[in-house]
Design a protein around this nucleic acid. Structure first.
Lengths: 218, 218
DNA sequence: AGGCTAATGTCAGTCGCTGACAGTTGACAA
DNA sequence: TTGTCAACTGTCAGCGACTGACATTAGCCT
């Protein structure tokens, strides 16, 4: 059926990949990203350094492996939002939907609290923060496209989807930072903070810049 | 007087520093950032690689040397905006004020068109783009603080300055990207595009979230 | 069992970057 | 002018991220 054993070879590959991610994140969060060498990670998983670089094109990439999972989950959640929701409304709802499903998706690879600590680690490591920002920018490009389609706007010419997404992303990052500074590193905590901060955003951007909902409407 | 010869030693230092910046940017824009080694830059300026790293702590840093100038110019321009202007209004006006003074400030070190091409190079080089985003985020922190002070808001608790700055920054970056895609790499072109894109932003964010201007006002 | 091929290991080399030590050269006083 | 000091620079050795080339191992399939 959908079990897909896919042979011993593929299973081993997945196992070593997951092990590399888990060990890397444990070392990164434990002793810091810069103070962890690729050799250390490779040695802990008992593979050669060369093999590490066959799985991940850079030391950076392994740090974002789980974030990649998160992002695709979020995009999937957004695509399932009903068309009747406004842009910010849909973006917000997708966040909470994604938080609901993340536990089972992530915990197959790493414990959820390691994922939380990884986020803190990324935010507090300059090079990773930079990479994170760039990745966010790329995501926002995607998001703006999705929002533009939802609202029936021209994704190239009309800057308003981008503005909305930029503002949304800015608030999300600010909320994340706030969460990092507080002591509570739980999923619940970040949910609460996100909720609170996003509530401020609605009033500021909830202009009704949607084309006439139905023709023949004054 | 204000001439400040500052001795031969200091002059030499400035000269080699400027030379390193100019040569580096010329090589970066000419053959690409990744395909340029620090050794090349150092050799072209006839200093040792070690000396390069005494002037710039990383290869990245020299790529942003002129951007640093720009940023301080912009911050200075913003601080001089009159308090009567709204947040977005002031942020926008400062952009154009900065563009007016940039020519003389930058051209002392590198030709202005090299600076323009450098911007394109940064935007199209992943690592530099990442660094650029992180630097932007740091700037936005500063900007949000300035705006909060202008508006008499709590810079820690109130998210609205951050939201406004995030949206503003998002539009600025989008405008920059748009400019990069068009063929016209002139200062005039980026001015025009910036003007156009920022015009869209006002209506979306110009809510009057300022505390009662004068007491005794309904 | 045996051949094919994906996966891995080994080795050498490049490039960014750093610490340590030594040599050179402006600055400044005697 | 001369000598001392401090700043600036060069050289060398070494670490860590990353890559290409080639040899080796080990699932997979007939």
């Amino acid at each position: 059926m959908t079990v897909e054993t896919t042979g011993l070879r593929a299973r081993r590959k997945r196992r070593t990949r997951d092990a590399l991610v888990r060990v890397a994140l444990e070392l990164f969060t434990g002793q810091g990203y810069e103070r962890t060498t690729v050799d250390e990670i490779a040695e802990a998983v008992e593979v050669s350094q060369r093999t590490f670089f066959r799985y991940f094109s850079s030391k950076e990439e392994v740090a974002f492996a789980v974030q990649d999972l998160m992002e695709s989950h979020y995009l999937a959640a957004l695509r399932e939002r009903p068309a009747c929701e406004g842009p910010i409304e849909a973006l917000t709802a997708a966040v909470f939907a994604a938080w609901d499903t993340v536990e089972e998706a992530v915990s197959a690879i790493i414990p959820i609290d390691l994922h939380m600590r990884s986020y803190l680690m990324i935010e507090s490591t300059p090079v990773l923060l930079a990479a994170h920002m760039r990745r966010s920018a790329e995501s926002e490009e995607l998001l703006a496209g999705l929002i533009a389609r939802r609202e029936g706007l021209d994704p190239v010419r009309d800057p308003r989807p981008r503005v909305a997404v930029a503002a949304f992303g800015g608030v999300m990052r600010a909320a994340g930072r706030q969460w990092g500074q507080g002591g509570d590193a739980s999923v619940e905590a970040i949910r609460t903070i996100t909720e609170e901060w996003l509530a401020h955003l609605g009033p500021a951007l909830a202009a009704d810049w949607r084309p006439p909902p139905t023709p023949g409407n004054a």
